[in-house]
């Protein structure tokens, strides 16, 4: 992979130049909440590593949209959301989350909405510093080797820039004068020091590697009941987790006597009571403990049979978000020590 360096003073101008490759998106503040949205002014971008409340998945797996319009003759898919986009400021964990979602949504038959949004979006990654609850060092997702077009590592006066695709290469070519092939020993030293400094900043960790076995062994543990009694079934953990991908489809008819309407797709959660409700009515996961088990099996054991790896990419959002402290840390701790947390 090509690695270049760029003087930090060019950053703004370079990011501006990316508009020719698509509409700019990235983390910006809105109503006191950091969110991935359209970027009018590159100065608004927040590139220091703070996490958005809702992860980047929302740009590829929209929270709520109409998949199609239908009538008696057939249906017309709604691809109106496709546009050329450049996503700036994706952290390593964001990029890993997209690679995980790719396994779910791009495996044949691919999800056309996700695929279209993904294919039309360039990814400009940015290095970050750990937040209070970052766990990506535990999950091995603190660095990325693929999944971006360009990746910028912020070393204060310079950026080291990894070129990850031919599109990334084209972006560099447009502003060739900003980039220097000559990465010196001093630059490399600086990078190594930065890595060490960053590694030392992680405040929390957990034993991610052993969790699949522990989860398997604990499937019938009564510890689940302790968490089930606490869980509010609010679904927040699912909405904020970058690798949760479940959705529900609802046919919304038009107010007319003709057979026509739209099919709406909305993020769903296995924490909600009707998630496993089928005709009958039978509910495979009516109990809160069973819902939690599914969630944590996905995150810490295996993401369904086909996708062998646990889905957690260590962003720490479940730790930030759950009002009653049910998260990968407390779950891992309880099942590793076989003790429930002290009140």
């Amino acid at each position: 992979m090509r690695i270049l360096k760029m003087d930090s003073k060019y950053l703004k101008e370079f990011l501006e130049s990316l508009r020719m490759f698509g509409k700019l998106y990235g983390p910006i503040w809105k109503r006191d909440v950091l969110t991935h949205d359209h970027v009018e002014n590159v100065d608004d971008l927040v590139l220091d590593g703070e996490h958005t409340l809702i992860p980047v998945k929302k740009l590829f797996h929209p929270k709520r949209f109409n998949t199609m319009r239908f009538n008696e003759e057939g249906f017309t898919p709604n691809y109106s959301m496709f546009e050329k986009r450049v996503l700036i400021g994706a952290h390593p964990c964001d990029i890993h989350s997209l690679l995980r979602l790719d396994e779910v949504f791009l495996t044949d038959p691919a999800d056309p909405y996700y695929k279209g949004l993904r294919e039309n979006t360039a990814i400009i990654g940015f290095s970050c510093l750990p937040t209070e609850n970052s766990l990506c060092r535990s999950t091995g997702t603190d660095i990325v080797e693929s999944g971006f077009d360009l990746f910028f590592v912020d070393l204060e006066d310079i950026y080291l820039v990894w070129v990850g695709s031919s599109l990334g290469h084209d972006m560099i070519l447009e502003k060739e004068e900003f980039f220097d092939e000559n990465v010196t020993h001093a630059d490399i030293q600086k990078y190594i020091q930065w890595r060490e400094m960053r590694n030392d900043m992680f405040k929390k960790s957990f034993n991610f590697r052993d969790m699949p076995d522990i989860m398997e062994l604990s499937y019938n543990s009564e510890i689940w009941d302790y968490f089930a009694e606490k869980c509010l079934s609010c679904g927040s953990c699912t909405m904020v987790c970058p690798t949760c991908n479940c959705y529900t489809l609802t046919d919304v008819f038009d107010v007319t006597n003709k057979t026509e309407g739209r099919r709406e797709r909305v993020w769903d959660s296995c924490m909600f009571v009707d998630y496993s409700l089928v005709a009958g009515p039978h509910n495979f996961r009516g109990k809160r403990a069973d819902r939690l088990k599914l969630w944590y099996t996905h995150k810490l054991k295996a993401f369904g049979g086909e996708y062998g790896r646990p889905a957690c990419i260590g962003c720490g959002r479940c730790v930030d978000t759950c009002p009653v402290d049910i998260n990968v840390l407390t779950i891992a701790e309880a099942f590793t020590s076989c003790e429930v947390p002290a009140k």
Partner: peptide, 30 residues
């Protein structure tokens, strides 16, 4: 949506989720 379902001889879709679902979709701090 419920009225339209009834016009079409179908049953309205229940929404048995808490307020938090849409609260998070709307990206509010809890």
């Amino acid at each position: 949506a419920a009225i339209a379902r009834l016009i079409h001889g179908s049953s309205p879709e229940p929404y048995p989720h808490p307020v938090c679902h849409e609260c998070k979709l709307n990206e509010n701090k809890c």
